[in-house]
């Protein structure tokens, strides 16, 4: 299968007018980090706990900016109350790109982080799109349009995690 390239992800963020990336490093996102760091149109806001990403994004959106949240599924699950209160409760139109740790379409999922990810999103009634390769990357724009239209968080599950984390590889 083709890979999801960090350059393509960054292009999607730029095409959708992202102003701020609120993020906590994911397992395999360093290549994307280097690209984002060198991109003058994007301001990186590093958080130390994923729950802060939702409140930070809510403040940025209230002030008229367009944030994206970049976290891992483990941190998303730790952030449930922030997602509820600052994301859904504040009608924050934000895309959260979630590293899908443990995801594989080749065999049985053994990582509980992956096992509970979609169940968690269902519990919060968050719509999501799976992106595994550059061929899927236009789904990121679909997510941005939906978040803006519905004024609520929409998730993009990054199944490839920028080439490296899938147990099948």
């Amino acid at each position: 299968m083709a890979e999801l390239s960090p350059a393509r992800v960054l292009a999607e963020l730029k095409n959708n007018g992202v102003t701020h990336v609120v993020w906590l490093p994911d397992s395999e996102t360093n290549f994307l980090y280097v690209l984002m760091r060198d991109e003058p149109s994007i301001d990186l806001v590093p958080v130390s706990r994923e729950g802060h990403a939702f409140s930070t994004a809510a403040g940025l959106a209230a002030g008229g900016q367009k944030p994206v949240i970049l976290i891992q599924n483990t941190g998303m699950m730790e952030s449930g109350d922030s997602l509820r209160g600052w994301g859904l409760g504040m009608n924050t139109p934000v895309v959260m790109m979630v590293g899908y740790r443990g995801w594989t379409r080749h065999g049985v999922i053994t990582d509980t982080a992956a096992f509970y990810t979609e169940r968690f999103l269902h519990a919060f009634n968050i719509n999501y799109y799976l992106v595994e390769s550059d061929e899927d990357a236009d789904r990121i724009s679909v997510a941005f349009a939906e978040a803006q239209r519905e004024k609520r968080p929409v998730a993009v599950l990054v199944g490839d995690e920028y080439h490296g984390f899938n147990v099948s590889r």
């Binding site: 729950g51 802060h52 403040g59 944030p67 109350d81 922030s82």
Partner: peptide, 23 residues
């Protein structure tokens, strides 16, 4: 004024940061 009450405890400082960066 943004009297938000308590959307979720522990998040006011981050919200204020986001707002300050935006404005």
């Amino acid at each position: 004024d943004l009297p938000l009450g308590d959307p979720a405890m522990g998040g006011h400082a981050s919200f204020a940061l986001g707002l300050a960066l935006a404005l």
